[in-house]
């Protein structure tokens, strides 16, 4: 499934009021051989990822990589500063003192992992301040669920097929939306 990556201009969508109907509807349209382009919901619906074949994100890998970078950076900088850059005697303690470095290493790890992951997240989710989003129906952030199918370049009979499949799946409304 494209998951909104290929942005089409015209969509047909079905609206549902309850998450269980919504999940059943996905199964129903998939049984008709259709592929859902976008599924909208006001909150995360559990079990939808498997139905739509959404792979688990690799955000945590980005987090781990960046966190590890933070750890190594903090360790290297402190070691360099305390042993080579400007070695200073603090109360007769050794210049290289791993226990004293641990708090800063930990904090830097968490900082880099969290900040990095946040940016990867907004990039992957195509979020940006001031971005004009393509929203199929404004009610989907309130109390409705929607299944959308892009219909650019589809024939009338194909569109009719999608519509009837949506009707059959228990959609309360079947609408068309075109984006400028």
């Amino acid at each position: 499934m494209s998951q909104g990556k290929i942005e089409q201009k015209k969509y047909v969508y079905g609206v549902y009021s309850h998450e269980t109907n919504f999940l059943d509807a996905i199964k129903s349209v998939q049984a008709d051989g259709l592929t859902v382009d976008d599924a909208y919901s006001p909150f995360p619906v559990h079990g939808i990822d498997d139905l739509l074949g959404i792979k688990e994100t690799s955000l945590h890998k980005a987090g781990f990589t960046l966190g590890f970078t933070g750890l190594v950076t903090a360790f290297s900088v402190m070691t360099y500063v305390n042993t080579m850059g400007y070695p200073t005697v603090f109360g007769g303690k050794p210049f290289f003192s791993l226990p004293a470095f641990i708090p800063v290493m930990f904090e830097t790890t968490v900082l880099m992992a969290a900040v990095g992951m946040f940016f990867v997240y907004i990039k992957r989710n195509e979020l940006f301040p001031g971005k004009i989003p393509m929203i199929i129906d404004e009610r989907t952030t309130d109390d409705k669920f929607a299944l959308a199918f892009g219909i650019d370049g589809k024939s009338d009979s194909e569109i009719a097929e999608i519509k009837s499949s949506l009707q059959k799946s228990g959609a309360e409304e079947v609408n068309t939306k075109s984006f400028e």
Binding site: Q3, T57, L59, G130, P133
Partner: peptide, 26 residues
């Protein structure tokens, strides 16, 4: 930030929350 509420956005949202929670706890 132009939130849409698609299934894939929510999937990433939940991943992010969980990993951030794991990082924030310690």
């Amino acid at each position: 930030f132009g939130w849409r509420g698609t299934a894939i956005q929510w999937s990433r949202f939940e991943s992010l929350s969980l990993v951030l929670a794991g990082l924030s706890t310690p």
